[in-house]
Design a protein around this nucleic acid. Structure first.
Length: 901
RNA sequence: GGGCCCGUAGCUCAGAUGGUAGAGCGCCGGCUUUGCAAGCCGGAGGUCCCGGGUUCGAGUCCCGGCGGGUCCA
């Protein structure tokens, strides 16, 4: 059977179901009603459950009913996974329950935590974020996907299509109490994440309430081939099912209960008559066409027509309410994201979090409400921690803080953006593309905002459609290339995997081995103690020697479990017994730095909070770096606490244990905290456990007790990017050495200040203050002396060619200061004042003209030039410099000029 | 990792073309006022981030460093 073939379920056929084709959407479906024409799903038919509730059940009751029903059918209930998909490197958010089990469990490489199992998994999807609100609850960014999964392997068959449909059917009719003639099964094909399979989509009263996927194909070279493992992948929409049972006016009423009204009144939005809302909601199914890119107002016009109402009336009533709904949805998503450790930033999942926060802030602005978004988010935390998610409450303080920080940041950008835009508009009366790029690139002000601000000022701004592409082009960004497999990769299969001695004993620095092959000019040994590059730890170096030969090992690489040594000399022939010697100092330093990285990461988590996650790391011999996620800067006090805790952990001399565990077992035992150091793409994980302190999946070499790390010194903490802080530190010998050096410098300074080391900072500050004081004093004195001299000179002028000329030789103040003094003292008297001031081998000169029609700048330029100097200036003031022995001739030239003109 | 922007008084920031460093707020003093808020007059407060270069002359131009911001990867 291939994809697209009829899905024939005997169970349904026996009950009298027949297969039909919907004339509206052209899709196939199974129904008990031989006269039925359409598939029954909106928009082919409107919703028919609104206002016709059949059970007054809450969301938690519906969830519990489902899970316990599946338990009674032999499924094991398991807890939810985080909404941030920490265990995957190809996804940011958990978007379906099956995501929890990809890729290793669905591929049959790792056994599932239970089989079959049932779960209710909170999922986040941002694809339809624009439709959240207008569709009255059909679209949500966060929802719970209830599911029962069965993983059928060659060894163990659980159940397949028949049983899956039976389970759904019994749940729908017995637990939900839906008459079976109202259940329609639509046929479909599900594709995603490299897997595919046929599916059945049960429709009840216009609403699709579940998807039953039979995952049995895997994509291979663009074609689907059958898989060994066949996976039952179901998804039951908890929110939709609750809505269906309750028949509430909108899906939001079913999910958020009292919160709908709380939010509505907090946001100052008028209550809408339930009858009108229900009628609107019923036909709102046509808003599904939003999926085809239609605009809300056009579709609203159509709804107004159906309901026989005026469109502007409807607009006025519904539009504000849509924003309330969107905020209900977004604030819940924000609460879950932040509770699960998301840190807002400009990349990856952090960006998705920021996107939702900023969207929410924009909605508040559109509603004209001034309030802290965090208040709304806190209400969600309160609401949902009482409804099956008590873990939200524990994160409340952090959630509120992050949302407040993001709000402040957003408002700051708006404020600054507005100011800059106003400035540009004022000076140029227009804004061009270059301005837009600068604003976005350097100030983070998006062009949409620029447009709004500029238009308020009456300036039209064109934003090119490809604006963001232009930015990208400007940065000449290059997509990271997929890691290329070396050309000799297949050649390696001829050899056995290398025995990795560095895992057996990380302190083993010498060993004997046999050369088993040469690959691409590198030596392959049967076993090795050389650590290859990996996990942010650079490869070892050292020496290989053998009878009649010796070469340096300059780098080591590992592919498919085979370790290759690159030498800087001739290769030992295959079969040779070699002796390997690892550069011990280097290796030990790296081991210490590597274990120190784990120690510091945990210390940071304990000091800053569980949202701290490793972003990246690089180990060196002298200094290493650890990048962690955090939503604000680290204070010096926090850094000290982290440093102290790390060093205390060293001194507790905790055992560092390394062992291998099957992925599922490791996750069950330790949780996803394992992946702090990054996702390890293997079904079997190497666990590095600092006993009683920290556990990570890690392939690096580590010391066996924390005491071996030696001192840890964090030199710097700096934000390298929004939401990411880089800690630069040293461990072991380099840390000790640099601390000793730093201390001896401190001692020297203390000695020259004549104080103890403890008081250096105070003494230094005092000395600086004294210095400032003295400088001021000297300047004041100098000014007084020069002022007297200038006064004297102004009285004692000489007449040259009708000009009253004074000459002052400055000694103690700068020329600038002298000019200022002259300016102050000359008042309205007509004067030419010549200032000279010796400065090394030269004399600085200035000529100030007061009250005469003379150009000082020209006078100085010519006079200085004629004596081998240079200068210039403006109408009133000229300045320059001349060689010191030319002072007299300079003054002569000035006199001659004034006399001659 | 790369691009761009910024670093000036306690704070927020101005300082086209290189030529006497400024404003607002805050601080101190005086005047006005029954008092307060406020107003008026005056004053103190500067290593223009650091180092080098170009220049007769650099807050301004060039190079390097430090610190901060922002965007892209």
């Amino acid at each position: 059977m291939g994809l697209g073939d009829p899905i024939e379920i005997q169970f349904l056929i026996e009950r009298g179901y027949v297969r039909k084709k919907c004339p509206k959407c052209g899709e196939y479906f199974w129904t008990l009603d031989p006269d039925r024409e359409t598939c029954g799903e909106a928009p082919c038919e409107p919703y028919s459950f609104i206002g016709k509730g059949v059970a007054d059940k809450s969301l938690e009751e519906v969830r519990e009913d489902f899970l316990s029903f599946m338990e009674s059918k032999g499924h094991t209930r398991i807890g939810r996974y985080p909404v941030i998909a920490r265990w995957r490197d190809d996804l940011f958010l958990t978007s379906a329950s099956i995501v929890d089990f990809q890729p290793f469990i669905t591929a049959g490489l790792v056994p599932p935590p239970a089989n079959p199992l049932t779960i209710s998994q909170p999922c986040i999807r941002l694809k339809d974020v624009d439709k959240v609100g207008p569709t009255m609850g059909r679209h949500l960014t966060i929802f719970e996907m209830m599911a029962h999964h069965a993983f059928n392997t060659k060894e163990r068959f659980i159940y397949w299509k028949e049983r899956t449909v039976e389970l759904f059917h019994e749940y729908a009719t017995k637990v939900l109490g839906i008459p079976e003639e109202e259940i329609i099964y639509k046929e479909g094909i599900w594709e995603g994440g490299g897997n595919a399979g046929p599916d059945l989509e049960p429709i009840v009263r216009g609403l699709e309430i579940a998807t039953l996927v039979f995952m049995e194909y895997r994509e291979e070279n663009g074609k689907y081939v059958p898989m060994d493992t066949k996976v039952v992948d179901t998804g039951y929409g908890l929110e939709r099912i609750t809505w269906l049972l309750r028949g509430d006016p909108t899906g939001f009423h079913a999910v958020y209960g009292d919160l709908v009204d709380t939010f509505r009144s907090e946001l100052g939005v008028e209550r809408v008559d339930e009858g009108l809302l229900s009628r609107y909601s019923e036909v709102s199914s046509i808003l599904r066409e939003l999926e085809k890119g239609r605009k809300v107002d056009a579709l609203r016009g159509k709804i107004a027509e159906i309901l026989g109402l005026d469109q502007s009336y409807l607009e006025e009533k519904i539009a504000p309410l849509e924003k309330v709904f969107a905020l209900l949805d977004h604030t819940k998503t924000i609460a879950f994201m932040l509770a699960d450790g998301l840190v807002p930033s400009n990349v990856n999942e952090g960006y998705l979090g920021r996107l939702l926060i900023r969207r929410s802030l924009k909605l508040l602005k559109l509603l004209g409400v001034e309030m802290n978004l965090s208040e709304l988010v806190a209400k969600q935390v309160d609401y949902w921690s009482g409804k099956g998610f008590p873990e939200l409450k524990e994160a409340l303080d952090r959630i509120v803080e992050i949302v407040d920080i993001e709000q402040a940041r957003y408002e700051e950008i708006l404020r600054r953006g507005e100011k800059i835009v106003k400035g540009i508009v004022k000076s140029k009366r227009k804004l061009d593309l270059e301005d837009l790029i600068t604003l976005y690139d350097s100030h983070g002000v998006p062009p949409e905002l620029v447009q709004t601000v500029a238009e308020k000022l009456g300036v039209k701004v064109e934003v090119p459609d490809n604006f963001y592409e232009l930015i990208a082009g400007r940065h000449e960004s290059r997509k990271p290339e997929a890691p290329k497999l070396p050309p000799f990769i297949d050649e390696l299969d001829r050899y056995r995997p290398t025995r990795l001695l560095y895992y057996q004993d990380p302190y083993l620095m010498e060993f004997d081995a046999t050369v088993v092959g040469h690959v691409d000019g590198m030596v392959l040994l049967d076993e090795t103690a050389f650590y290859p590059e990996g996990g942010g730890q650079p490869s070892d170096v050292g020496v290989l020697s053998w009878p009649g030969g010796k070469a340096e090992v300059i780098s080591v690489e590992k592919y498919k479990g085979r370790v290759l040594h690159r030498l800087n000399g001739p290769l030992p022939p295959v079969g040779t017994k070699v002796h390997g010697k690892v550069d011990e100092g280097r290796r030990l330093s790296r081991m210490r730095h590597h274990t120190a990285t784990h120690v510091i990461l945990e210390a940071a988590r304990r000091v800053l909070g569980p949202h701290v996650w490793q972003w990246g790391a690089q180990k060196g011999d002298e200094e290493s770096r650890l990048d962690i996620t955090h939503y604000k800067g680290i204070t010096p006090e926090e850094l000290k606490r982290i440093e102290l805790l790390a060093n205390e952990t060293v001194m507790r001399n905790l055992p560092v244990n390394t062992f291998w565990l099957l992925r599922t077992d490791a996750e069950r035992r330790y949780g996803f905290i394992l992946y702090q150091g990054g996702v390890v793409p293997d079904p079997v994980l190497r666990i590095v456990e600092i006993q009683g302190y920290n556990v990570q999946a890690c392939g690096g070499t580590h010391v066996t007790r924390t005491g071996d790390i030696g001192p840890i010194k964090i030199w710097r903490a700096r934000r390298i990017q929004d939401g990411v802080i880089r800690l630069e530190f040293s461990a072991g010998v380099p840390a000790a050495r640099r601390l000793i050096e730093a201390h001896s410098k401190l001692k020297e300074i203390a000695q020259s200040l004549g104080v103890s080391e403890e008081d250096v900072d105070k003494a230094f500050k005092a000395a600086m203050e004294e210095l400032r004081e003295l400088r001021r004093e000297i300047r004041r004195h100098a000014r007084e002396i020069e002022e007297a001299k200038i006064r004297e000179a102004l009285k004692d002028f000489e007449e040259v060619g009708g000009y009253r000329v004074s000459h002052v030789e400055l000694a103690s103040v700068s020329l600038d200061e002298g000019v200022k003094l002259v300016d102050k003292l000359v008042g309205s008297e007509e004067r030419v004042v010549v200032l000279t001031r010796p400065s090394g081998e030269r004399v600085e000169v200035a000529v100030l003209v007061n009250g005469y029609d003379l150009v000082a700048g020209d006078l100085v330029r010519e006079a200085t030039k004629s004596v081998g100097g240079g200068g210039g200036g403006n109408q009133r003031l000229g300045r320059g410099s001349i060689p010191k022995e030319k002072l007299e001739s300079f003054l002569e030239v000035i006199r001659a000029r004034l006399g001659g003109s």
